[in-house]
């Protein structure tokens, strides 16, 4: 929960078309095949700006995380993380449906999506079954 509604812009339109159908699209370099994070404009490995799209497999590991304390009635906590996808890229995402005290660096996570009212579908992750 507590994923914020955000909008698309021209650059991110294809990406959010992907999240709407349940795909996390990554940028695959058309020149060298390297898989880059979704927002990347030039391949990290070969610097080519010619990038296509490829859907992520949906698994990754927690590289680091923070537990955000939200003041409210009642107060709540949410877990945000840098997730390293199996394909290589890291993305910032929320870890949902988890006891914040049970999250560790290195935990395996699986992809899901949340669609806040009035916003685009946003990738989130769940801790994989241990």
């Amino acid at each position: 929960m507590a994923v914020l509604a955000i909008a698309r812009d021209d650059v991110s339109a294809e990406f959010f078309d992907g999240t709407a159908r349940g795909e996390l699209l990554l940028r695959k370099c058309l020149k060298c095949g390297h898989i880059n994070a979704p927002h990347i404009e030039a391949c990290i490995r070969c610097a080519s700006p010619e990038l296509g799209w490829q859907a992520a497999g949906g698994t990754g590991r927690v590289q680091t995380f923070a537990v955000v304390h939200l003041r409210g009635d009642p107060p709540s906590r949410l877990v945000v993380a840098k997730v390293g996808l199996a394909e290589g890229p890291w993305i910032d995402a929320q870890i949902v449906d988890v006891d914040p005290d049970q999250v560790h660096i290195g935990d395996e996570v699986t992809l899901d999506f949340e669609t806040p009212e009035g916003g685009e579908a946003v990738p989130v992750f769940r801790i994989a079954d241990r």
Partner: peptide, 23 residues
């Protein structure tokens, strides 16, 4: 009003410097 790729961390809860530095 956040939009585009730069809004993704915000949507996820990475709002403000303390969260980034905490990570």
């Amino acid at each position: 009003k956040p939009s585009g790729f730069s809004a993704l961390p915000l949507a996820s809860g990475v709002r403000g410097a303390p969260v980034q530095y905490a990570m």
